[in-house]
Design a protein around this nucleic acid. Structure first.
Lengths: 210, 210
DNA sequence: AAATGTGAAGTTGTTCACAGCT
DNA sequence: AGCTGTGAACAACTTCACATTT
């Protein structure tokens, strides 16, 4: 959770750095070399001062009067986030949602690859062909060790989630992207990000009722 | 964005109310009638005081010395969130991710139904059978008006996202669950929730590198 | 002139400490 | 005794204002 030897950067800032990185990628595609905090902030949906504060956590490299060099800033943020190298990820729980996520091949472009899928019933019939084999849970531990996988996508039913999460952690997984609708109990050094589409919709529906 | 005649409840609280509701549902399944703020907070992954503060935004109904009645509290939160009635939702952009979301039929259990799907190329060949017909974008406006749809899931490529979002808003959509990796520009009265799986993974990967 | 970098002020959200019910 | 409800203290985050640099 903390990065030794560097200033502690707030969670929210890290999240926004990812957003800035994607905005910068689009600028690059359009062959734009230089950008002001004003313009970049606008693209990212934040205030210019916030952008500058965020960048200030890991040093200054803008040019006053001019702005930031797009390539240099991209590189710097990318280094900071550690996204320069492709991270292997496993997916556990190939039910409806897990299958959906597997068939969505949009992770690779962004530096992540789902390298294996696991399920309690690997042979179960599924209504869609996928290119990746599905392994039984007994194969998980060895695989994670051998391939040195650190991250997992968890898409099992609520009732199984905590048990499976425990297996993942025992195998050495340190980061879990949790799609199951329960709050996982994990030790401090394991990181969980929750994604719950139903809650997102519920949240929207609240705010649009006037 | 604001609810007339009621105290303004912070976004984060609303989000947590959804979590509490799901924890309460599990308690109900286990035929537990009463719960303390301590126990419920633990299940929801928050501190007891925070839970009580959250509930205090819309009035007190716990029993001191005892705790909360599970059914009554569920009902109260559900009313507050307005999730008692089923909300129709449309999905726009039936590419890889959109198709994946359509085939994930997990929304219905949670009070939402995807009632129609739209795509710029509705006849395009897709590698999976789905039960819902896919309409062309020209059908969108009428449908939204007729069925009085207020929420949309947006899963089109980045390049098209803002244009399509504009169409949605022109048709009367007030809440967008945005899966496309750009920040949408919308007027104040339209609500956008962003879900970006790549960013979630990137975020995880940052925090697990020691 | 234009735009960054940053201490200080302001705002929002969280936790504490404890009074007040049951 | 046990647990809620809440003002006050605290912490985190955001924005402002402006000095500084090119």
């Amino acid at each position: 959770m903390k990065k030794a030897g560097r200033p502690i950067i707030p969670r929210k800032t890290i999240y926004r750095l990812s957003i800035y990185l994607r905005c910068l990628a689009r600028l690059r595609e359009n062959a734009i070399n230089t950008v002001s905090s004003e313009a970049l902030a606008q693209a990212a949906g934040v205030k210019p001062t916030q952008l500058r504060k965020d960048l200030a956590y890991f040093g200054a490299f803008g040019t006053r009067g001019l702005g930031y060099e797009v390539n240099a800033l991209s590189k710097r943020i990318s280094d900071e986030l550690g996204t320069s190298s492709l991270q292997p990820v496993i997916l556990v729980g190939v039910g409806n949602l897990g299958l959906a996520l597997l068939s969505y091949r949009g992770f690779e472009k962004e530096g992540f690859e789902i390298v294996a899928a696991f399920d309690a019933a690997p042979k179960r019939k599924r209504d869609k062909q996928i290119h990746l084999p599905i392994w039984g849970m007994e194969k998980l531990k060895n695989f994670v060790h051998e391939k040195n996988v650190k991250m997992a996508i968890l898409s099992v039913p609520a009732a199984a989630a905590q048990t499976v999460a425990n297996e993942l952690m025992a195998a050495g997984i340190m980061g879990i992207l949790n799609f199951s609708p329960i709050v996982l109990a994990v030790p401090e050094d394991v990181m969980v990000n929750n994604v719950n589409l139903a809650i997102e919709l519920e949240n929207l529906s609240y705010f649009i009722q006037g």
